[in-house]
Amino acid sequence: MTTTHKLCLGGIVITMATTCLAYMGASSSWQFYMTVDEFLNQAPTSRDYRVRLSGKVGHDSLRIATDRTSASFTLVGAKSHLRVECRGPLPDNLTEGLDVVVEGHGKNSGLFQGDKVLTRCASKYDASNL
């Protein structure tokens, strides 16, 4: 078996493995975050672990403490929503109606205790009117 043959064979196996990985990622989604609906569809008892949740900050729900160390808001998903309380550094541009990812863990009372908020970029870049 020459080096060329070996390289080809190795290439095939490695490509197959990578495809397999891609398929796994696509089917079960190697989750960086869960949506609010997926999270709430789980049994309440299994919600008590660390997770990142993605959703929109609900209108008229954002309350930011004056020293900007904590905030509370409603995280709105496609069908359901969830109350979130977040302690820790907040991004400067946190506003209502924005897509965010909250990191933290669920509480049995239906409250989500977050400690980190990431704001997601808009899916369309619009020119500012200023």
């Binding site: 070996k6 493995a17 990985l21």
Partner: peptide, 14 residues
């Protein structure tokens, strides 16, 4: 598992 397959193959080849 995938990682192991890739690197054992790579080892045999390279």
């Amino acid at each position: 598992v995938v990682f192991s397959i890739v690197f054992v193959t790579a080892g045999i080849v390279l």
